[in-house]
């Protein structure tokens, strides 16, 4: 009996349950019409005119427990509005939203006890105090038991690598260090869901990579569901299982991230470096007529494999141009989203 090892086996359910169910949500805002002239400004004091903005137009999607879901879209696509509804800070105009078996905006105080929210550009750490003091305050706010708090603190400081500066005042931390501490501060109460709004904004490559690795580890080891919005598509590419793409308040893609990339990644890029300056107009067949200039003497050509054969394109290029170097690249997620919107 003595010395017997007890192995903890974490069972992963084959059929994961939906933790977020969003159904046909719309959100309309009334926005005051700005007046440019002084006369218009005076008249607006007496009678305010509004226009209606449809921020969300029938958005539906589900997220499974333990998944990492990326929400992307250009500015004004409706991401912030959607996240505000999901975190209970805003009511939708119509439609329904159930997160962790609660309607967020109707049961706010109970609901937010089980979520963590990181705002990339807002801090919930106390500026003048050591990082640990902010954590202790949050322990009181979330009423975390002492033992659980200490265990979580040890675990999260390790995976986020913040143990070296936990006693340093927040004002003396770098942006990357602060963001890592910021993420830990939202995890101490063991949230079932973590909302990350631009968690890597303004960070250098090493800080970004540390945060991404930690989020991945957190999701795998704790089973935390993560909703991530980011303008850095590498975040999405590295982290997410599921991708929701918003455009002008509508979902234009909801599903597996790889499906999205495969669906739109039929296009490839040929990047060629040529010897010396070329006058594109002088070339007889001009294979570079659709090219864009990447650098001096380096051109990038989009190939749509549904209408063009890559081999023929390559043959044409080799025959026509004094090539120094040539490579074939797949479009990145960033390229795909960029081409979708333009």
């Amino acid at each position: 009996m003595f010395g017997e090892k007890v192995c903890k086996v974490q069972l992963i359910p084959e059929h994961k349950m939906n933790i977020i169910e969003v159904s046909n949500i719309t959100k309309n805002y009334k926005v005051s019409k700005g007046k440019s002239s002084f006369q218009g400004l005076l008249s607006s004091l007496l009678k305010n005119e509004y226009s209606v903005v449809n921020a969300l137009k029938g958005v539906s999607f589900n997220v499974k427990e333990g998944d990492i879901c990326g929400v992307i879209g250009l500015n004004g696509a409706g991401k912030s509005t959607l996240i505000k509804i999901l975190t209970g800070a805003m009511y939708p105009t119509s439609g329904s939203c159930v997160v962790n078996s609660k309607v967020p905006y109707k049961e706010r105080e109970i609901y937010v006890d089980k979520i963590g929210v990181v705002f990339g550009q807002r801090s919930q750490l106390l500026w003048d105090l050591p990082v640990k003091h902010s954590f202790v305050i949050l322990r009181h706010i979330y009423r975390i038991e002492k033992k659980k708090f200490e265990d979580n603190l040890e675990y999260f400081t390790k995976i986020m690598g913040i143990d070296k500066f936990i006693d340093t005042p927040v004002r003396m931390l770098s942006l990357g260090q602060r963001m890592r501490a910021e993420i830990v501060s939202t995890l101490l109460h063991d949230p079932k869901l973590l909302f990350l709004d631009e968690p890597t904004i303004g960070l250098d490559l090493i800080a970004k990579s540390t945060i991404r690795r930690a989020i991945k580890q957190l999701s795998e080891e704790k089973g935390t569901t993560v909703i991530l919005t980011s303008h850095d598509l590498d975040d999405i590419d590295v982290l997410c299982d599921q991708l929701v793409v918003l455009d002008s308040g509508k979902v234009i893609h909801d599903g597996n991230k790889s499906d999205f990339i495969n669906k739109f990644r039929s296009n490839k890029k040929i990047v060629v470096e040529v010897d010396g300056q070329l006058d594109l107009k002088q070339l007889s067949k001009n294979p570079l007529k659709e090219a864009s200039i990447v650098a001096d003497n380096t051109y990038s050509i989009e190939v749509d494999e549904q209408t063009q054969k890559l081999s023929e394109m390559l043959k044409e290029l080799v025959n026509e141009l004094p090539i120094v170097d040539l490579s074939i690249e797949e479009n990145s997620l960033e390229d795909i989203v960029h081409s979708l919107y333009h």
Binding site: T87, G88, A89, I110, I115, V117, R122, I141, Y142
Partner: peptide, 13 residues
């Protein structure tokens, strides 16, 4: 500037 959103996501009045 966003403070309200932060208050709304914490389990306190």
């Amino acid at each position: 500037e966003g403070s309200l959103y932060q208050y709304l996501t914490r389990p306190m009045p």
